[in-house]
């Protein structure tokens, strides 16, 4: 009996450490990545693998069949809900022309237009300076 308990404890700690590593690394990725879709990927991995591993470790460690069943149900619901929500967010972002970098296409075009205007102004200023110097 003691051997079985030790075995389950070791399994639970393995799941827990793996889950903690996944959650923590995905958290850093979510904060540091610039691209929208890469961040979506980090959030998805964190929710599907990290949270599920940690909850499964807690379920094994609980030693109560009711809590175990409830936690397994929560894991399944969490996975299904994460897949659905991430799919919806990505689909609507793609329909609204979100390009890489997280900007919408309209905002991207506006930024490009502003850059072009600034370059033109600089060119005009340079020409004006040259003409004044020549005079």
């Amino acid at each position: 009996m003691v051997v079985v308990e030790t075995f389950f404890t070791i399994i639970a700690w393995l799941f827990f450490i793996t889950g903690c590593y996944i959650v923590f690394s995905c958290f850093i990725g979510t904060l540091r990545f610039k691209d929208f879709f890469v961040r979506v990927h980090a959030v998805k991995i964190s929710n599907i693998y990290g949270v599920s591993f940690i909850l499964f470790a807690l379920a094994i460690n609980s030693a109560d069949i009711i809590i175990f069943t409830q936690l397994v149900l929560i894991i399944i619901l969490n996975i299904l809900m994460t897949i659905t929500t991430i799919h919806a967010i990505c689909r609507i972002a793609l329909n609204n022309n979100i390009v890489h970098g997280g900007f919408s296409r309209r905002k991207y075009n506006e930024m490009k237009e502003e850059e072009r205007k600034k370059e033109e102004e600089e060119k005009i200023n340079n020409l004006h300076k040259e003409t004044t110097n020549n005079l």
């Binding site: 959030v43 964190s46 909850l55 969490n78 929500t85 979100i98 997280g102 919408s104």
Partner: peptide, 19 residues
């Protein structure tokens, strides 16, 4: 700043808070 990034972080926050 962006709306969809805000929604993504909101989702992430709610999941972690629930857990």
């Amino acid at each position: 700043a962006e709306f969809f990034s805000k929604m993504l972080m909101f989702f992430y926050f709610i999941i972690n808070f629930t857990t």
